[in-house]
Amino acid sequence: MTKKAKAYWKENLRYLFMLLMIWFVVSFGAGILFKNILDEIKIGGFKLGFWFAQQGSMYVFVILIFVYVRLMNKLDRKYGYDS
């Protein structure tokens, strides 16, 4: 593996780790760990902890997919892997 390819994959794995940590904090943290604190806030009549567990983590996951695509497009251009 070339030096350029190793740098590319290292940066790619860093992005993956950051995005997965965000998703973990939102899904597990907000939906389970911080549920009691978030349940004091209501959105549309539903407790915020319940909302994150049922809806919010899925919305964040879809947003993170688009963020990942954008980051990877920039990374591909940076290392010359775009076609």
Rank of each mutant, 00 (worst) to 15 (best):
D76R: 10
M58P: 00
F61C: 00
D39T: 06
R14F: 10
S57V: 02
L71Y: 06
G49C: 07
W9S: 06
L38I: 10
L33N: 09
W9E: 13
L64I: 06
Q55Y: 14
M18T: 01
S27R: 08
K10R: 15
Y15F: 13
M18N: 00
G80L: 02
L16A: 01
G56S: 08
L48A: 14
M58Y: 10
Y68K: 10
F61Q: 03
S27A: 12
D76I: 04
M21H: 00
V26Y: 03
V60W: 00
Y8P: 03
I41H: 12
M72Y: 08
I37K: 10
I43M: 13
F34R: 00
L33Y: 08
I63N: 05
R14N: 06
I37R: 14
S27C: 04
V69L: 11
G80K: 01
Y68L: 04
K10H: 07
L38F: 14
F61A: 08
G44D: 09
N12P: 00
M58I: 09
K10G: 15
L33Q: 01
L48F: 13
G56T: 04
G31C: 04
K35M: 09
L20Q: 06
F17V: 02
D76K: 13
V60L: 08
M72K: 09
G80P: 01
V67G: 07
V25P: 01
V69C: 02
N36W: 13
I32L: 06
F50H: 05
G29H: 08
Y79S: 06
M21E: 10
K42R: 15
K74C: 01
G31P: 01
W23C: 07
L38C: 12
Y68W: 11
I65L: 12
Y59F: 12
E11Y: 07
E11V: 13
A53H: 10
R77A: 12
R14I: 14
Y68N: 09
F52H: 08
N12C: 12
I41Y: 14
F61Y: 04
I63C: 08
N36R: 11
V25M: 13
Q54W: 01
R70D: 06
G49L: 04
F46V: 05
Q55S: 10
F52C: 09
L75N: 04
I32C: 03
G29Q: 07
I22D: 02
I65Q: 08
L64K: 08
F24M: 11
R70G: 04
I41D: 03
Y8T: 07
I63T: 14
M18D: 12
L71H: 00
R77V: 11
K10V: 09
G31M: 02
I63S: 09
E11N: 11
F24D: 08
R70L: 13
Q55A: 05
Q54P: 00
G56C: 04
